[in-house]
Design a binder for these strands. Structure first.
Lengths: 81, 81
DNA sequence: CGGTATCCAAAGTGATACTG
DNA sequence: CAGTATCACTTTGGATACCG
């Protein structure tokens, strides 16, 4: 949920950037979730074959719908004492 | 999530009633979740000392807030092919 | 840089049996 | 009726190490 929310807030993000914003999840967990979300068509993965490698993640149209519906819930969750 | 949603849709519900509407969760799971939600002040538990015993569950004000914020998400999830 | 592979510990779930 | 207790099993997540 936070993953979707964070990507949605930034339009496009690189892996390391996501990691920095999601310090309570490990690398492998983020990686696995990204795979799942890509599989579920919520997130797109764009790989640039450069050196150093660069990969960008962004929400799909579906992903944005989920993100919108998620916002109010996350807002409630985070403002709860 | 479904638990909150279902209780919210019925105002007040008895345990067996909840079980009937949530056939994919076992008795013990429903019981544990209800305890947690009560602990988190999302659900109230009202026990009537009669024979046969009767216990009613309802959402608190907080619970209703969550339920509202949950609806659009659940709606999206269930209408997804 | 952007991951994957491996292993392990912890949490979640269900089936079954039993209780006030 | 409304649960709890126990146990086996599955799922999830993190730590660590390594790779193209």
């Amino acid at each position: 949920m936070q993953l979707i929310s964070i990507i949605g807030a930034h339009q496009t993000m690189r892996f390391a950037e996501i990691e920095a914003h999601l310090s309570d999840a490990s690398t492998s967990t983020i990686s696995k979730r990204l795979d799942e979300f890509e599989e579920a068509d919520l997130v797109t993965r764009t790989q640039y074959d450069e050196i150093p490698p660069r990969v960008e993640y962004a929400l799909t149209k579906e992903g944005n719908e989920v993100q919108e519906r998620l916002e109010s819930l996350l807002e409630w969750a985070t403002t709860r004492s």
